[in-house]
């Protein structure tokens, strides 16, 4: 890496720190609410939360002889930003796939918002209000940005084969969806890409598009699989802003992320995976000091500050 870019990165890193500082000085409504709700919760793996939206029990998934996921009990508190961390191959993404119905566990039960959704197909889970994004973005390349977003709306009358032929039955609903989609495009700074094929967008724009599209479902909970990966630092800031704003509006957010700075700055609760198991969970400050985490995670994957010195 050239010195220039090195300097550049350090400067950006610095700005992240400044904003983080700001954030800690004046925590948002959602952050304060989340902190209050989690105030009495002990930082032990599998601890019960006062108002859990997602509860998983005895989830396991084996690939051949490898135990990719082996979670005894995990609860996600409603209205918080929960980060899943852990070294590569710790089972975070597999856990995502299992809870959202994109992969089937060897065993386990899980419920969302009090309803048992074990083994439900992925599309039904999404309709229940739990929506995910993908590590490798899945922009629908030959649909325009606007179409990508409009697709996300649920309960569309025009999506049924027979009613789709009768435009009057869905025209009004479609107009409403279009309006909502345009608002979201504007909010994510994508308004200028409205009629472009999603395939022409940059990687960062696709990440934004995917998140906006997931929001069109109007979920109660959104699972973001490495939302910052491949996104340039300027966009990272706006993405983080969006995520926090969603939490402040009352949405539950779970994200898998590798950038420790990002995690420590925005999450209300951190769950650490290693070799498929939850080895620690707690507030960011607890996790920073947790010896199990340092052994399993920081031991193999040193923090960025150390890398740079």
């Amino acid at each position: 890496m050239s010195d220039d870019r090195h300097e550049d990165l350090l400067a950006q890193r610095e700005s992240v720190h400044e904003q983080e500082q700001e954030r800690e000085d004046t925590p948002s409504v959602g952050a304060r609410r989340a902190a209050a709700a989690l105030a009495g919760v002990a930082n032990v793996p599998g601890v019960a939360k006062p108002d859990a939206i997602l509860v998983a029990d005895d989830m396991s998934r084996h690939f051949g002889g490898v135990r990719a996921v082996e979670v005894e009990h995990l609860e996600i508190q409603r209205g918080t930003i929960t980060a899943l961390i852990g070294p590569n191959g710790a089972g975070k993404s597999t856990f995502f796939n299992l809870t959202t119905g994109f992969d089937r566990p060897n065993s386990g039960r899980w419920s969302f918002d009090g309803k048992d959704i074990s083994g439900a197909p992925s599309f039904r889970i999404a309709r229940q209000g739990m929506v995910r994004t993908f590590q490798l973005t899945k922009a629908l390349t030959r649909l325009t940005s606007l179409e990508n977003l409009m697709l996300g709306a649920t309960g569309q009358r025009g999506e049924r084969l027979l009613t789709s032929l009768l435009r009057p039955t869905w025209a009004a609903q479609e107009a409403g969806i279009r309006h909502r989609a345009e608002e979201l495009l504007a909010r994510f700074n994508l308004a200028h890409m409205r009629d472009e094929f999603a395939g022409t967008m940059s990687g960062g724009q696709r990440k934004l598009l995917e998140m906006a599209r997931a929001l069109m479902v109007q979920p109660d909970m959104i699972l973001l699989d490495e939302p910052m990966a491949g996104v340039n630092p300027a966009l990272t800031q706006s993405l983080l802003g969006h995520i926090e704003a969603l939490r402040d509006e009352g949405m539950t957010i779970v994200l898998v992320e590798h950038d420790m700075d990002v995690i420590m700055s925005i999450s209300d609760w951190v769950v650490c995976f290693a070799q498929g198991k939850v080895i620690a969970e707690g507030r960011p400050d607890d996790i920073r000091r947790d010896t199990a985490v340092i052994d399993a995670y920081l031991g193999t994957h040193r923090s960025l500050q150390e890398d740079q010195t």
């Binding site: 599309f123 993908f134 629908l140 697709l151 025009g158 999506e159 032929l165 069109m216």
Partner: peptide, 30 residues
Amino acid sequence: LVWLLVHSPWGRVLRAVREDEDAARSLGKN
């Protein structure tokens, strides 16, 4: 008939399935 269908939300879902099944699934489409 095909023109009517593909210019409806139903056709939009169809094209989404063509592009990426998993993405369509993640948005609640069967």
